[in-house]
Design a protein around this nucleic acid. Structure first.
Length: 568
RNA sequence: CGGAGCGUAGCUCAGCCUGGCUAGAGCGCGUGGUUUGGGUCCACGAAGUCGCAGGUUCGAAUCCUGUCGCUCCGACCA
């Protein structure tokens, strides 16, 4: 390809709406352009890099035995009602109506479609296992599109769905995907690591997210350098000790705390109750009913864990009015002592705690010397707190660390949640009918592209890994008139490399050397071959790996040298 | 949706507070010259309904109201 033939609109300055490095580089290197918030056009170079990633995914999915399909982006509302997700996923669904007023959803994912297909086409254990995947455009009405391709309203996702006869068989499928993901992200040239992930409402322990470490990531990951434990903050637990029990038999006692409505305020005189001896009482509305959450005063509630406990992702913090209606007091004076008829979910860390202080459900008053087990009716003990850095690892007790990361992939064991709802069953050897055991596996393809850039760049621009670079080689003749020696040699090397299957772009622009070099660095081609009079006079060309040192090479050896660099 | 901020040329921004002549700069773009191994230099030129609508005023990019869009922080997720 010739530079002047394609479109590579590089920018000296980043548009002001780009904040993070990868987003700026996507725009500056001329890979994408924004049409609207969270909606982008892929320009030739961006598309080529994207296709590279897709191809890596395709190869590894095929290698793992998955089969490619393509499902519709337009999905009838009915199947979403059948799965129950028309309501639970409502917030992110793009809804459209056709001319006859029928409702459709633009696909954010395809469990409903694939399970419908399986219900119709899979009848026998002999057809299993099966793993269907597709690479397609997905739509999500993101509350807030962000950071270019990182969180977009429209994006490209690889999604796969496995169908197996048994739980054990499903685990095999899961494992295959897990291994394939590792290979995929390694091949894309990004540092990546799997972490245990939140399974939310579906529950179970079989979910991992693949993370690319990045300060600009949107996920917090807890990890242990000693034993390798790693988990999304939504899922992470630690070996932090429970609240120490004290030898106090004193009965519960109410005391006045006028104007004290925060944990922080209660730690100060005259009350002077340390946060770790306080019970934080939170009221949420789940399925339109209030529930009480108890966690220790110095802990933070983890809403992802709460979703798993209450069994629905549709919940929210209660309003002050709802709280007053439920408990007769306002936030700041709430407690669960003596509460009946409202479910009380208490964090494990409070189990056995006594001599605690909590609100008295009377504005301006608190209780002290509260013993949880004695004074509060706890509906369920559960893990509700958010882990913080430095806590002992749940596996090896060494201090945990916390870091930010970009989630690029997610593998998830679904069980029979969907197969039961869609009647996706098979006939077993013994003639009995059983629901397929499912798994689902996603990769954010466009997000991965950006993660690669976020990870592979320097002050001059992108530093593409060879595997995803839009072109492997950029030939830069410094004089471009058709009869110049540099251009003739450039054409020759271009033809020879192309014949060898190398992807080459020839910078045939009549620009000053500085401009061409800067652009080549910005776009980040892995190998640059420069041909100017200076080296030409010595019968040489220059070969420079992006980010590496220039090597002068005899012009006859240039092609072989480039091939050697590419083949590694 | 809650909080914060921004919309002036293709891009980055100045001008707005304190209203007043043909609305500016740099980059980019076009023409000519110059230069030719890391974003040359010079000259000339094209290019803006000042996001949109309404209001105040003799007069609005500037003040007021509304609206749309965008960005950032939070809740959501590949």
């Amino acid at each position: 390809m010739r530079w002047t033939q394609t479109l590579i609109p590089t920018l000296k300055e980043a548009p002001s709406d780009a904040e993070i490095t990868s987003h700026k580089l996507l725009l500056r290197a001329g890979l994408i352009r924004k049409l609207a918030g969270g909606v982008y056009t892929f320009l030739p170079l961006g598309l080529r890099a994207l296709r590279k990633i897709e191809q890596i995914i395709r190869e590894e999915m095929n290698r793992a035995g998955a089969i490619e399909v393509l499902m519709p982006a337009l999905q009838p509302k009915e199947i979403w009602e059948q799965s129950g997700r028309a309501e639970t996923a409502s917030a992110v669904l793009f809804k459209v109506k056709d001319g006859s007023n029928r409702e459709w959803f633009l696909s954010p994912t395809a469990e409903e479609v694939i399970t419908t297909l399986a219900a119709n086409e899979i009848n026998s254990y002999r057809q299993l296992p099966k793993n269907f995947y597709q690479i397609s455009v997905k739509f999500r009405d993101e509350i807030r599109p962000r950071f270019g391709l990182m969180r977009a309203k429209e994006f490209i996702m690889k999604d796969a769905y496995s169908f197996d006869t048994t739980d054990d068989a499903s685990m095999v499928s899961y494992r295959k995907m897990y291994d394939a993901y590792k290979r995929i992200f390694d091949r894309c040239g990004v540092q990546n690591f799997p972490v245990e992930a939140d399974t939310g409402v579906i529950g179970g322990n079989y979910s991992h997210e693949f993370m690319v470490p990045a300060a600009t990531g949107e996920n917090d990951v807890v990890f242990c350098e000693a034993c390798g434990y790693a988990a999304n903050i939504e899922k992470a637990t630690s070996g932090i000790p429970k609240t120490a029990a004290r030898e106090i038999g004193a009965p519960i006692e109410k005391f006045a705390t006028p104007g004290v409505v925060t944990i922080e305020a209660l730690t100060k005189a005259p009350s002077s109750v340390p946060a770790n001896r306080q019970i934080k009482t939170l009221i949420y509305i789940a399925d339109s009913k209030p529930v009480i959450i108890l966690i220790r005063g110095d802990d933070q509630l983890n809403e992802a864990k709460l979703a798993g406990v209450v069994g629905t992702p549709v919940f929210r913090a209660a309003t002050a009015e709802e709280i007053f209606a439920a408990l007769g007091a306002h936030p700041g004076s709430l407690g669960a002592v003596g509460v009946k008829n409202i479910s009380v979910f208490a964090d494990e860390r409070l189990r056995g705690a006594n001599d605690m202080t909590t609100g008295a459900n009377e504005d301006g008053f608190h209780f002290k010397q509260v013993s949880i087990e004695r004074d509060i009716v706890v509906t369920k003990w559960c893990d509700l707190r958010t882990v913080t850095a430095g806590e002992p690892c749940v596996k090896c007790a060494k201090p945990l660390k916390l870091r930010r990361a970009i989630e690029v992939g997610h593998v998830f064991k679904l069980g029979t949640k969907y197969s039961e709802k869609f009647n996706a069953t098979y006939l077993d050897v013994d003639g009995s009918r059983k629901p397929c055991v499912m798994g689902c596996y996603g990769i954010g393809v466009t997000r991965t592209l950006q993660a690669v850039i976020e990870h592979c760049n320097d002050a001059d621009g992108i530093v593409w890994p060879l595997s995803v670079a839009p072109y492997q080689v950029c030939i830069t003749p410094l004089a471009v008139t058709a009869d110049s020696a540099a251009m003739k040699l450039a054409e020759k090397i271009y033809a020879e490399l192309t014949a060898q299957g190398v992807e080459v772009i020839l910078d045939d622009r009549d620009e000053r050397p500085g401009v061409k070099f800067k652009d080549a660095d910005l776009v980040g081609f892995p190998i640059r071959v420069s041909i100017g009079e200076k080296s030409l006079a010595k019968g040489e060309v220059e070969i420079k790996p992006r980010g590496g040192a220039v090597a002068a090479v005899k012009m006859d050896e240039a092609v072989a040298r480039v091939l050697a660099l590419i083949k590694g």
